[in-house]
Nucleic acid binder design. Structure first.
Lengths: 197, 197
DNA sequence: TCCTGACGCGAGCAATAACTCGCTTTCAAC
DNA sequence: GTTGAAAGCGAGTTATTGCTCGCGTCAGGA
């Protein structure tokens, strides 16, 4: 950020710009994400925009960061509720929390996952993924009775990737014949079967 | 294509343009994929480019189409070799064929998967995915003894998505501590465990 | 060899977009 | 109320890019 907003009106404007950025992204797509259009949508002038954001990508980054932050927070909250539980129920509930979090802003998920040059959101997403993977890995090391797989790190990699991808594709594609409960059944079967294979 | 090349030299040029398109994509990234740069890289003038391609996206589409075509062909060839076989060996060999096919042009895979606004390659990729899914689904219906999962369509969706994603991420991220054999072990365990869950 | 159409060229047009700068308006401390 | 700084404006600058068009060149059949 180029300069910290000091007065209340400017803090409001920064928020309006971010909100407008999200709106443009969702309603017009990434191609239409120009500084001029974001400014117009926010009801301000391009010059004002550049008082607080050094360039176009800074706005984009904040929108994306906030999105993943929100997803992470929701999943983390669900996990915190169930510390100590384990087995199929835990898998199911965690997957459910992820699906709910992704569904909360399906339109932005679509843009972020399918339209954006992924490089942009990659770092933040990878960081989130790594955190979850490490959590899973240490959990597996602490409870070796839960699986017959030899390497906790590898196992965590597989599980996290599989769940993340299934949840994302399900939310975006809404495949016919698979409702939410069916999806969770499949995820539990996939992960459960894998861990005891 | 705007006009069919008739003489040999123009046919050569069309190929040179496509090759240059691939090169620009791989070496400079999607952002640098401009018609002028593609023309310069091909050693021709922008005007010549437009004699055969109606617009920029036409070149891009051909490059991407050819990539997925090649991947599909390699996997299909591997499957054709093993018609009739089944079980863990088939899973392993098919996954292996996919990994090999994706590794053949890792750099282009990176651009196509991570840098391109996915919408571009989505149709072709989705078509390929659907073909494989339907194949898997009918196979599962013909051999209900192979799995305990109730819905062949859903099972195929899960299996294809999981394998595709694990293979792609492995090729692109080269995760430490997981070599090719380990990856295939994990895929076999994941899919095998799931089918008998 | 000549001629016609296919081929190829590259300067340049039109549109767009990121970003700036000189100016006015608003705020708040005194 | 005065004043200096912060906030806000929007026309304009610069750079890029997709694409065209008029003109010269080359291939190959007669």
């Amino acid at each position: 950020m180029r300069k910290a907003p000091q007065q209340a009106r400017s803090r409001v404007m920064v928020e309006r710009i971010i909100a407008a950025g999200r709106a443009v992204l969702v309603e017009r797509g990434y191609d239409a994400f120009s500084t001029n259009r974001v400014a117009t949508t926010a009801g301000i002038s391009p010059g004002s925009l550049y008082q607080y954001f050094p360039d176009k990508t800074a706005i984009l980054d904040i929108v994306i960061d906030r999105y993943w932050e929100e997803v992470a927070e929701r999943v983390a909250a669900s996990l915190a509720d169930r510390i100590g539980s384990f087995g199929p129920a835990m898998i199911r509930e965690t997957a459910d929390a992820l699906v709910v979090a992704l569904e909360a802003d399906r339109e932005l998920l679509r843009v972020v996952s399918e339209e954006l040059p992924i490089q942009r959101s990659r770092d933040r997403r990878a960081a989130l993924e790594r955190r979850v993977r490490e959590l899973t890995s240490t959990y597996l090391m602490a409870r070796p009775d839960l699986t017959r797989r030899p390497s906790p790190a590898t196992t965590a990699w597989v599980v996290v990737l599989a769940i993340e991808n299934l949840a994302t594709r399900w939310v975006l594609d809404q495949p016919a014949g698979i409702d939410r409960d069916a999806l969770l059944d499949e995820i539990v079967a996939l992960v459960g079967g894998y861990l005891s294979a």
